[in-house]
Design a protein around this nucleic acid. Structure first.
Length: 427
RNA sequence: GGAGAGCUGGCUGAGUGGUCGAAAGCGGCGGUCUUGAAAACCGUUGACGGGAAACCGUCCGGGGGUUCGAAUCCCUCGCUCUCCGCCA
């Protein structure tokens, strides 16, 4: 959520900067509602003030044993007038809140203009795509040949966009998770967290998935439970600090979490239907930070470098881009995408997305810290990034480490997590 | 699933219809004392909204109701705890 004060005082510049995200702010509507709000609020408050003072004098009169009947006559219709004013103000307030909850975060100055991923700005290319002396296969073909990566069995159980893994592939998948968690806890100073995979609508509103993007989520809607499956661990972890005031000595808070993620992929029928790239259920290791406002840009660089560290340790070639305005997510002010080289597709594909949300989520969640300089609670800044998407990392390992006979060399860094195994081959 | 007890400021916890945004303690901040620190003592200290300010308003788990007036009474929902039953 944007600062209502900013909207009131800087409506034009805000609208201008939001347009870079492809969002058209209805300025007329906003100004109209704001003017109504102001007059209604003034009216309501003066009625409340009148009620308070009158009631107080009734109390005093009664205490002194005076006759309160004339006073009661005076306030006879005050209650009704007040109730009506309060109700009007409430419904107007709600209308404005709904509007406010649907406005995306403002892109940072450093975000390039553009409306599609072609305008993303490349900042780094790391490693070189390997040259194959045979025709590189994609992970689906490799998995078929090796066994252990089975989309048909999953389709039988659950439909399209699911997978089952068995044997060495399943172990490699688990090893990736263990490796990433170990790196982030032992080297990068994150606290490991375990979280619910089902969350409430309030929680999703805190991070910005609701109310606007309900169709992207899986929902449990039974008689006693209205819950959503998390689309990313960002949702439960960031909400750790909702409705709380964090002591400044405890900042920054850095959490790493492994969870499954569930996405309905409602808007992407026909896209990436082959393989592991786009699944309804996938594993992700997520990095989340809550920091002091003045430290969030530095934190974004660090968090991104932590995600990059995994790719580098696995020796996977990647590029780093800044998302342009049109490609930027709803809650983010700036996002780096890390894109790993996939020989099977002959292109770079997103494997991590690292964002600074500034105070956008914190305002929705009421996540604050106490600033020792002012001794006042102030909004935190929140950040998150994949460190990394596990399914896509598995794809990257299989495709980049394949050999002519279809076997897969296990990167050194993963071997301790795979009982020392160095090669996956068909048997 | 059954029975009962709770939910109050950063924390603990008093408050059962009127001057209560709320005692007290802890914690925080400022000061006295001290070479310095601790202890002790004194003072101060909730959040949010509107306003240039004075000031005004809202907030005692959420929502609704009764009343001139609600932290306090009623209804409802949520959560926590205790006991019983069931259970990975």
């Amino acid at each position: 959520m944007l600062d209502p004060k900013l909207l009131r005082t800087e409506l034009d510049p805000v609208a201008e900067r939001l347009s870079r995200k492809g969002y058209q702010l209805d300025k007329k509507l906003y100004e109209k509602l704001e003017a109504q709000r102001k007059s209604l609020q003034v009216e309501t408050q003066s009625l409340q003030s009148e009620r308070n003072s009158k009631s107080k004098s009734i109390g005093q009169a009664k205490a002194q044993g005076q006759d309160i009947k004339p006073l009661l006559v005076e306030v006879a219709d005050l209650g009704d007038k007040l109730k009506q004013a309060e109700q009007e103000l409430d419904s107007l307030q709600k209308e404005m809140d709904d509007l406010l909850l649907g406005i995306p975060n403002i892109p940072d100055e450093s975000v390039p203009e553009g409306d599609s991923e072609e305008q993303n700005a490349q900042v780094l290319v790391w490693g070189e795509p390997r040259v194959f002396e045979f025709e590189a296969k994609d992970h689906v073909e490799l998995g078929e040949q090796l066994g252990g990566l089975d989309f048909e069995t999953a389709a039988k159980l659950s439909g399209s966009r699911f997978v089952t893994m068995t044997g060495d592939i399943a172990m490699l998948h688990r090893a990736l998770i263990q490796f990433m968690l170990t790196e982030h806890t032992e080297r990068n100073g994150y606290i490991e967290a375990y979280v619910p995979y089902l969350v409430s609508d309030t929680t999703l509103q805190g991070t910005g998935q609701l109310p606007k993007f309900e169709e992207d989520l899986f929902k449990i809607d039974s008689e006693h439970h209205k819950l959503y499956l998390i689309p990313t661990a960002e949702v439960p972890v960031t909400n750790f600090v909702s409705d709380t005031i964090v002591e400044h000595a405890d900042l920054p808070l850095k959490y790493v979490t492994h969870t499954p993620c569930f996405r309905s992929e409602a808007g992407s029928y026909g896209r990436d239907t082959r393989g592991l790239i786009r699944q309804h259920q996938f594993e992700k290791v997520e990095l989340v930070q809550m920091v002091k406002p003045q430290e969030s840009w530095e934190a974004l660089e660090q968090l991104t470098s932590h995600a990059e560290g995994i790719l580098q340790a696995l020796d996977l070639p990647y590029q780093k881009v800044i998302l342009c305005g049109g490609d930027l997510g709803f809650s983010a002010a700036k996002t780096y995408d890390l894109e790993v080289w996939l020989p099977g597709q002959n292109c770079y594909r997103e494997i991590s997305s690292c964002s600074n949300m500034l105070d956008f989520q914190a305002r929705r969640m009421k996540a604050r810290w106490r600033n020792p300089e002012t001794d006042k609670p102030e909004l935190l800044h929140t950040l998150n990034g994949s460190g990394l998407a596990v399914g896509r990392t598995l794809v990257a390992i299989m495709e980049n480490y394949q050999q002519a006979d279809g076997s897969i060399v296990i990167p050194e860094a993963l071997r301790p997590f795979m009982r020392g195994k160095a090669l996956i081959e068909a048997h």
